[in-house]
Design a protein around this nucleic acid. Sequence first.
DNA 1: CTGTTAGCGCTTTCAG
DNA 2: CTGAAAGCGCTAACAG
Lengths: 332, 332
Amino acid sequence: MTTIHDVARHAGVSVATVSRVLNNSGTVRTDTRARVLAVIDQLDYHPSAMGQSLRLNRTRIVMVVVPEVTNPFVGEVVYSMELAARSRGYSILLHEYHGDQLTDLQLQQYVSTRRIDGLIFLTAEAREKQFQQLAQQLPTILACEYVDHWDIPSVSIDNIAATLDVMRYLMGLGHTRILLISGSAGNVSARDRLRGYRIAHEQAGLPVCEELLQEAEPTPAAAYATLTGAVERGLDFTAVFCASDVLAIGALRALQDKGLAVPRDVSVVGFDDIMFAPFLNPALTTVHQPAREIGERAIAMWLCAAEGKAQDYPVTVRHELRIRDSCAVARR
Amino acid sequence: MTTIHDVARHAGVSVATVSRVLNNSGTVRTDTRARVLAVIDQLDYHPSAMGQSLRLNRTRIVMVVVPEVTNPFVGEVVYSMELAARSRGYSILLHEYHGDQLTDLQLQQYVSTRRIDGLIFLTAEAREKQFQQLAQQLPTILACEYVDHWDIPSVSIDNIAATLDVMRYLMGLGHTRILLISGSAGNVSARDRLRGYRIAHEQAGLPVCEELLQEAEPTPAAAYATLTGAVERGLDFTAVFCASDVLAIGALRALQDKGLAVPRDVSVVGFDDIMFAPFLNPALTTVHQPAREIGERAIAMWLCAAEGKAQDYPVTVRHELRIRDSCAVARR
DNA sequence: CTGTTAGCGCTTTCAG
DNA sequence: CTGAAAGCGCTAACAG
């Protein structure tokens, strides 16, 4: 392993000088610099990240805390974060989070041992307290969600407005009994989508029927089970609004298996617009979230926060209801 | 920031002693240990990861190189790797790889600057040379793929056997003109699936019709375009075998949009068995890969390699053809 | 059983 | 413009 000392010795200069040419800091005579550069090249020298980290007290690693990489929407956001971070010399440490205490502890460990320079949360989850505590210790950004009473930089769509778009669209088609399948309640997005659901009913002067509010684990299988159960119980509804496309895929199938045609008998709307949405059968009407943009903005905002610069937040990016083939006029 | 020196001072011992109790190394008198532990607790001391890294020359970070986190199958593998790694005190640094020179360079940088302890490749891609070079420098595992002429620990299903299963199933249903949509050619899995395709034809005494061999980017949209084009050109086939479920989703839709019913007119088979496969319409017949198991085994194997222990490889895990509703007897 | 000490590889102040 | 030296936080060899 060749170190800065080897380079210094071979070039006949001190390590300080090598460091200067490495970092373009201080002043180095042109010919000295050339000599050092030549040796660096010849020895194929690369400065040790650990040495630098210890000295500078930063790792150039930011941890991305996600609820489920397996969800293509999350994957897309993480993907763009990785590219954006890398292009700025940072790396992404991936961390799955499912709201358990052990993970809380592990997260705090990462922070305490200074293994990471900062955090980006893709989920604010139920454990807001824990997250707030972490956010106090390191630069932190919230992506995909927004929490009113928490003063932290965030980038997301307006989840409530998006839900209202969906609800108004559905109500415009004559639907009044809309089944909501949301993710677990701790999730802010789920909360916002529920909130939007209620507001829409209020605005339309319609009562919210609590039995139409269903929760499911974030898998198609769970949504399938939930919806199958609802149909079997004879629950009365003409449309289903799923808090994510992942859920919608299970919902679509459950309805079809129960002999209900989509959209003829029941309309279905998803959320996220994952890459599969337009190719489902029927093509899924859903809320498009600019995943790539969210990822890139989150990284940019994190960098900004890490440099201690002031910035405006929350940042709200544009969503869009993509109308495809899974909704029709209510027949009842 | 509290350091080991603070702890030592407060406990009235030397840093060596603190280090000993921290690492359970050497011998420490019970009461001394208790005193040190108390101070650690009181000061809420956590050893600096950077200090340890520099000293021990390891980061406890392993880089996972993936072709596309956005693919749910890949997501699932990465997910299980993250959990498995974490439970052993390691973290996952995510790195998207698309076969470009810049990324090759960045990967080498990570290795040269000793930012990571090792590598796990989810793709062997075209750039085998580059990967082999990296593998020489750090403990490396290949997951999901197997390369005959490359002596490296790997864990994967038997891609050729799996393809043969698919082909025999399809041929058993009377299909002789089977369209193959594979990912980009550099990909080993794609190569194996193509190889299996050819072997099956040979065994059946059927000629391989080159025009039935199609390539597509790994997105449903690309598969959709490819297949739509094939149908429009009047290409004659009764079944489509997709090298991944992601492709199959696009294929399914393309056929339906062209007025071809699946499976009545055309049969479709996917690969991977992502969580959406059973919920598609029709439910997709596909090859199940044990994603979780692959991820866990890969981490275990990496650890083994990192400790310099000998191990048997390649490890072949079980695949399974999951027959669902997207295939039927050929009508021509 | 415990302390002293020498680094791991790097950056940066301070002198010159 | 350059070098000497201190020190980031830690572990481990060595001495006692």
